[in-house]
């Protein structure tokens, strides 16, 4: 029960609730029993299909009934349908489950059923010369992009929706260019810097674009990313999302000049926000990276700066003080 407030009910109120529920419970049990026995008898009729719709409407988590529904389609309905009809049945199943999704945005089984519907959309319609087009698929895919965007409007962190979005993008008959997806993440980030899901998506899309556009364009785009993330860091230095993204942007093997520039920039932010845990934490991380790129004899000053920051971190962020102490001890005295 995620996020449902606990209420105290008297015994009488509880009994009254159960009594009121009895009719609903009886209907539910009868329908369940009917469908499970039809399933055993391999009843692949349209009537069973409609009953499944009804049951899934009251309980969209009943995975066995989702399976049964698909088996009715595969074994009973598709064999006697034309490809046009199959396309239209699957399109209407997608429409039908959209309302279920809005009411239950985190139910795995509904998302899963949409994937199955999409994957089974047949090629077509035929062109005048008799060739199969991808028209039906393209149309269904486009509609799914629309649905998933509405789901992300309602909850911009819903990981089911993000996973489904990546799934659609990866199987699009004619996919939109990755730059369009990058724009989408920019839009999501600009409406809320704290949306780490969108930053994460950016970390997956940019490498695809860079691979295509070459080193020079990558360098230019990286600088724009630093501008975007710096803007976010200055807007709310306590928000983890942008700091995590900054770490991705720097990467595990940065150029020392770039690293030094970013360290200086964070030091400036720290001077404005002297208690900022994330400024200090990031400075320690990046300074440790820089130490690994520096000759042994020139490391001591940086090490002592790290030790100073780690001691301060243990004070401002006591929950994680053991971690700071451990890193400090590893640095030696």
């Amino acid at each position: 029960m995620h996020g449902v407030k606990r209420t105290r009910q008297s015994r009488e109120a509880e009994e009254a609730r159960k009594l009121k529920e009895q009719a609903k419970l009886k209907d539910y049990l009868l329908l369940t029993e009917d469908l499970l026995s039809r399933k055993k008898k391999k009843d692949w009729s349209k009537e069973a299909f409609d009953l499944a719709t009804k049951l899934l409407h009251s309980n969209p988590e009943f995975y066995t009934i989702w399976n049964y529904r698909r088996n009715i389609l595969i074994n009973g309905i598709f064999p006697s349908s034309s490809v046009e009809e199959i396309n239209s049945i699957l399109s209407s199943d997608l429409s039908l489950t959209t309302s279920a999704l809005k009411a239950h945005p985190k139910v795995y089984w509904i998302w899963n059923h949409r994937r199955w519907c999409l994957e089974n959309v047949p090629p077509g319609p035929s062109s005048p010369t008799g060739e199969q087009t991808q028209g039906w698929r393209q149309k269904n895919w486009e509609r799914e992009m629309y649905v998933v965007e509405r789901m992300l409007d309602a909850d911009a962190r819903n990981f089911h929706a993000w996973n489904y979005r990546r799934y659609i993008l990866s199987l699009f008959p004619t996919p939109p260019p990755p730059t369009q997806e990058l724009k989408y993440t920019t839009h999501k980030i600009e409406s809320n810097f704290s949306n780490f899901s969108a930053w994460h998506q950016r970390s997956k899309i940019l490498p695809l674009i860079w691979e295509k556009e070459g080193k020079e364009r990558e360098e230019e785009m990286r600088e724009l990313e630093f501008d975007l993330v710096r803007n976010a860091l200055y807007t709310d230095p306590n928000d983890q999302s942008a700091w995590l993204y900054h770490r991705w942007l720097i990467g595990p093997h940065p150029d020392p000049i770039l690293l030094t520039r970013e360290i200086t920039s964070i030091q400036e932010l720290l001077s404005e926000q002297p208690d900022s845990k994330w400024c200090m934490e990031s400075l320690v991380h990046y300074t440790l990276l820089l130490i690994s790129l520096t000759p042994e004899t020139e490391r001591e000053e940086m090490k002592s700066e790290c030790r100073r920051l780690l001691a301060e971190l243990a004070g401002v962020d006591p929950c994680r003080k053991n971690r700071y102490q451990e890193i400090s001890e590893r640095l030696g005295v």
Binding site: F159, W162, N163, H200, K204, R247, W248
Partner: peptide, 15 residues
């Protein structure tokens, strides 16, 4: 993922 975490499938956010 780069943050050391893992997601539900390829490309998914750490959870």
């Amino acid at each position: 993922n780069f943050d050391g975490g893992f997601g539900a499938c390829i490309g998914a956010e750490s959870h």
